[in-house]
C-alpha cells in the first residue's frame, strides 16, 4: 500500500503556484463585488424561470377566459389578467423563454460571427481589411434601431426574423472590437514566432488571436444581452417581433398600453420583468469587465 502510494504520487500539485486564472479565481473575484453577485443572481433566477416555466406557471398562458378579463392582481391571478382573461403571471413566466433566448441567441450569433470577421480582418490587413471595415462603417452609420426595424420588416414579422435582424445589426460592433484587439495581438511575439514555425493564417487567427482577443468581447457580449432583450421588446412593441398569441414581454407591454390608465398591472409587470432582466445582465457585464480588465486588478 505504502509503495503504491509512493509510486502513484502525482507531480506535487501543491508546489505549483496558484494560477491567477480558472473558474475558482473568477468566482473569488465575483464574490468581492456585491453588484456582480446581484446581477448573477438575477440571471440565474431568470434562467431557472425559463427552465421551470411549466411548473412555476399557475395557469395555461394562452387559455382565454372572457369571464375574467382585466382583473387586478389577486390570490387567484397574482399579476392580474389581460383583456381576454389570460393570466399575466403565467404569461410573464413563459415569456421569459422568448425574451431571454432572444438575448442569448443574438449575442451568440453576432458575437461569434463578429469576432471571426474582426480577427480575420485585423490579421490579414491590407485591402481585405479596408473593404470589410468600410462595410461595417456603412452599417454603423445607420441608427441601429432604424436598421433593425427595416431588416425585421423586410424579413417579415416573426420572432425569429426579429432575432436575425438584431443579430445582423449587432455584428459590426463585435467586428470593430475584435479587429482592434487583433491589430495589437498581431504584433505580439508569439504570433511572430508562430509564423516562423510555419503556421498558416487561419491557424494564427483561430489559435492565437481569438483566444487573446476574448476578454473585451465577453464583456461586450454580456452587456449586450440586456440591450438585445430591450431591442426585442421594442420590436415586439411595434408588432415586428413575436406574434399573438405567443407570450412575449415587449408585445405584452405594447398591448397593455391601451389599458395603462385603468389596468396598470397589464403593462406594469411585463415592463418590470424587462427592467429586472436587463439590469441583471448589465450589472453582471460591468462586473466581468472589472474582473477581466487587468488595469483594474487589485483595486
Amino acid at each position: 500500500m505504502n509503495a503504491m502510494t509512493e509510486q502513484t504520487l502525482p507531480t506535487a500539485p501543491d508546489i505549483q503556484p496558484a494560477a491567477a486564472s480558472g473558474l475558482g479565481y473568477f468566482f473569488y473575484k465575483v464574490k468581492k463585488s456585491p453588484l456582480t453577485v446581484a446581477g448573477l443572481f438575477i440571471i440565474l433566477f431568470m434562467l431557472a424561470m425559463m427552465l421551470f416555466a411549466p411548473w412555476l406557471a399557475t395557469h395555461d398562458p394562452n387559455a382565454i377566459d372572457l369571464m375574467y378579463r382585466l382583473l387586478p392582481p389577486s390570490a387567484e391571478h397574482w399579476f392580474g389578467t389581460d383583456e381576454v382573461g389570460r393570466d399575466i403571471y403565467s404569461r410573464i413566466i413563459f415569456g421569459s423563454r422568448q425574451s431571454i433566448s432572444v438575448g442569448l441567441f443574438v449575442v451568440a450569433v453576432s458575437g461569434v460571427i463578429g469576432a471571426l470577421i474582426g480577427c480575420f480582418s485585423g490579421v490579414v490587413g491590407g485591402r481585405t481589411d479596408r473593404v470589410i471595415m468600410r462595410l461595417m462603417d456603412v452599417m454603423l452609420s445607420v441608427p441601429s434601431l432604424v436598421l433593425t426595424m427595416a431588416l425585421a420588416a423586410a424579413l417579415g414579422a416573426s420572432l425569429f426574423n426579429a432575432m436575425l435582424a438584431i443579430a445582423v445589426v449587432r455584428i459590426p460592433y463585435y467586428v470593430r472590437l475584435a479587429r482592434g484587439q487583433a491589430l495589437g495581438i498581431r504584433e505580439m511575439g508569439y504570433v511572430k514566432a508562430a509564423r516562423t514555425f510555419g503556421a498558416s493564417r487561419w491557424h494564427i487567427v483561430s489559435w492565437h488571436v481569438i483566444r487573446n482577443a476574448l476578454p473585451p468581447l465577453i464583456v461586450q457580449a454580456t452587456l449586450d444581452i440586456g440591450g438585445t432583450i430591450l431591442m426585442a421588446a421594442a420590436l415586439g412593441f411595434i408588432g415586428l417581433g413575436a406574434q399573438q398569441p405567443t407570450a412575449e414581454w415587449g408585445a405584452m407591454v405594447a398591448t397593455g398600453r391601451n389599458y395603462v390608465l385603468d389596468q396598470w398591472w397589464y403593462s406594469g409587470f411585463p415592463g418590470l420583468a424587462i427592467l429586472i432582466t436587463a439590469t441583471g445582465f448589465n450589472l453582471f457585464g460591468d462586473g466581468i469587465r472589472d474582473i477581466l480588465d487587468p488595469k483594474q486588478k487589485g483595486k
Binding site: M188, G189, Y190, K192, A193, A194, R195, T196, F197, G198, A199, S200, W207, H208, R211, N212
Partner: peptide, 25 residues
C-alpha cells in the same frame, strides 16, 4: 513553400522569450 520551410528545415529563435509564447495556452 515558405510555410513548409519555416519550422521544418529552418527554425528561428527570437530575442523576446517573454512574449514568444501564447500566454493563454
Amino acid at each position: 513553400t515558405m510555410r513548409t520551410l519555416r519550422g521544418g528545415d529552418v527554425a528561428m529563435i527570437f530575442q523576446e522569450p517573454m512574449t514568444a509564447l501564447n500566454p493563454t495556452r
